[in-house]
């Protein structure tokens, strides 16, 4: 129904449906833009991770590509000094509140943070900022998976999967500010909640916050992406 338009991303001419979100147009055309929170299937973009900035000709400041819809003749740059600087700071901010121990992490080599670091040549350690992570109890109560909130980057994907995809409603965001957290009712154990242990959240989590117990035991075994 929507009309096809052409735009230019990093000097490459691409076709897309008018009104599509720029992030997905770029990804579909093999152009990588770092991203954590946006889901192609989701009704609404949340634009919370702030990693997907790009420059668009004619706009004064970088914009998030997940909230930007494409239009005819748009000229996009996925890299620029300003975009790179924002990504560097945003990424380091996330790392400053992420318990870093990649070697032992169940998601080692399949973690979205590692992917961003690799694509953009960023270090997986803090260079300017202070470590903020507090020790958190890992919730090992479900049968086959665990939830470690100290790894969570608050992208909200798991909540989308739980509430919109499998429509269970076991987890949600609680509190606010630095205390914001993915949790169950009264921040209890998953096994004590209405969680059906369907693993939808585990499949969708881009980092090592929701992970399978078997992956932790065999951390180097690389499974195929689904």
């Amino acid at each position: 129904m929507s009309k096809l338009i052409t735009l230019i991303i990093d000097d490459k001419q691409v076709e897309a449906k008018e009104g599509e979100r720029l992030l997905w147009v770029a990804l579909d055309n093999g152009i990588y833009i770092p991203h954590l929170c946006d889901l192609r299937m989701a009704r609404r973009t949340v634009a919370s991770c702030r990693l997907c900035f790009v420059e668009i000709e004619g706009l004064p400041n970088p914009v998030t590509s997940c909230t930007q819809t494409v239009s005819e003749g748009m000229v996009v740059r996925t890299r620029s000094p300003r975009v790179d600087r924002l990504l560097r700071t945003g990424f380091e901010l996330l790392l400053s509140n992420h318990r870093l121990h990649c070697a032992k992490c169940a998601k080692n080599k399949r973690c979205e943070l590692q992917k961003i670091a690799k694509e953009r040549g960023l270090k997986l350690k803090l260079t300017r900022l202070r470590q903020l992570v507090k020790e958190a109890q890992i919730d090992e109560s479900p049968g086959v998976f665990c939830y470690d909130s100290s790894k969570c980057v608050l992208c909200g994907r798991c909540i989308w999967a739980d509430q919109e995809q499998v429509k269970v409603g076991a987890i949600g965001f609680i509190r606010r500010g630095i205390g914001r957290k993915v949790a169950t009712f009264e921040d209890g154990l998953l096994a004590d909640s209405i969680c059906t242990q369907c693993e939808a959240c585990v499949k969708i989590c881009p980092v090592g916050a929701f992970y399978l117990k078997e992956d932790e035991r065999k951390p180097y075994k690389i499974k195929k992406e689904c």
Binding site: V168, G169, I171, G172, R175, R176, A183, F185, D187, I194
Partner: peptide, 20 residues
Amino acid sequence: RQVAEALQLPEVEVFGVGTF
């Protein structure tokens, strides 16, 4: 819990608002 049930909302949603 009672409010969540009456409004047909996930309990965690009510808790989320209550802690925000």
